[in-house]
């Protein structure tokens, strides 16, 4: 076995441990010592890189499980990255999948770490031509992301409705010469934010601001536009409209229902 460690250059709280070759029972002691040193240096998140591992013995796996427990006690975690299919099968047979999360690549592991422990939002930006026919694809795309990220079916459906109403509005009431509209979503474990920017004539933009920022009762008595936007108000947690010379930006926040 060869083992080397490095502090992640992306996040100094994470240690990358590269394992190489056969991981035998005779390697347990050295490994345990390395883990203890890492814990003593107050680092509690470890990504075990196992792309070049050829064999894992059951005593070694037991040792790794013990090491993970020590990290978890400190509020940390250890995940395993890059196992080949055969090794993965072997580890699952030994019950390792109940203790460790396996990731195919470091990126996915980092993304999960950020999602779980740092609550930083992930951002997706879309630009599209101002065509109403494109909106169904956009709304399904964004709802699909929410589902993929673990939001409930109900939340995802509501997010789809919000995107639909706001994007349609930006196209229908936007300046006819606008070349594109932009839709941005910021999603984290607890909330979803949607920002839709477009070019709108000033009077339309002010009208929109009135509809969106008026109280619910006023909005519900309006026309179709008012009803759609009133619906958005009902299913979201906050709405902000900002207008300047460059255009109009509508920002909607929706909290995740099971957070």
């Amino acid at each position: 076995m060869r083992i080397s460690q490095q502090v992640s250059r992306h996040d100094e709280r994470i240690i990358l441990l590269h394992f190489d070759g056969d991981l035998n029972a005779s390697d347990c002691e050295a490994t345990s010592k390395i883990f203890q040193e890492i814990i003593d240096s107050k680092k509690y998140f470890i990504v075990a890189l196992m792309e070049n591992v050829t064999f894992v013995s059951s005593p070694f796996l037991g040792e790794l499980m013990g090491c993970k427990l020590r990290l978890v006690e400190k509020g940390g975690n250890m995940v395993v990255v890059g196992l080949n299919y055969d090794l993965r099968e072997r580890l699952i047979q030994m019950g390792a999948d109940k203790i460790f999360q396996f990731y195919p690549d470091t990126h996915t592991a980092y993304n999960h770490y950020h999602w779980e422990y740092t609550q930083s939002a992930q951002v997706v930006s879309i630009t599209l031509p101002p065509k109403l026919q494109s909106v169904p694809a956009v709304r399904r795309f964004i709802a699909g992301i929410a589902k993929q990220k673990g939001y409930t079916a109900r939340d995802s459906f509501r997010i789809e409705t919000i995107v639909d109403e706001i994007a349609n509005n930006a196209i229908e009431h936007g300046d006819s010469s606008q070349p594109e509209i932009s839709v941005e979503l910021r999603i984290d474990r607890k909330k979803f934010e949607l920002l839709v920017r477009n070019k709108t004539l000033m009077d339309k933009a002010n009208q929109l601001k009135c509809v969106l920022e008026a109280n619910k009762e006023t909005a519900q008595t309006g026309d179709t536009r008012g009803r759609g936007l009133a619906l958005v108000k009902l299913i979201s947690n906050s709405i902000n409209v900002s207008i300047d010379k460059s255009g109009t930006e509508v920002k909607i926040t929706k909290m995740r229902e099971d957070s």
Binding site: S125, I126, S134, A137
Partner: peptide, 28 residues
């Protein structure tokens, strides 16, 4: 021509909805 663009984090989880989005846009 109609131009679309999407920028998203390097995370495999985004791929299923993304690829379906581009396919749906091509249909549109």
């Amino acid at each position: 021509h109609a131009a679309y663009s999407v920028n998203l984090p390097s995370d495999l989880e985004y791929i299923p909805p993304l690829r379906q989005f581009v396919a749906e846009i091509a249909r549109v």
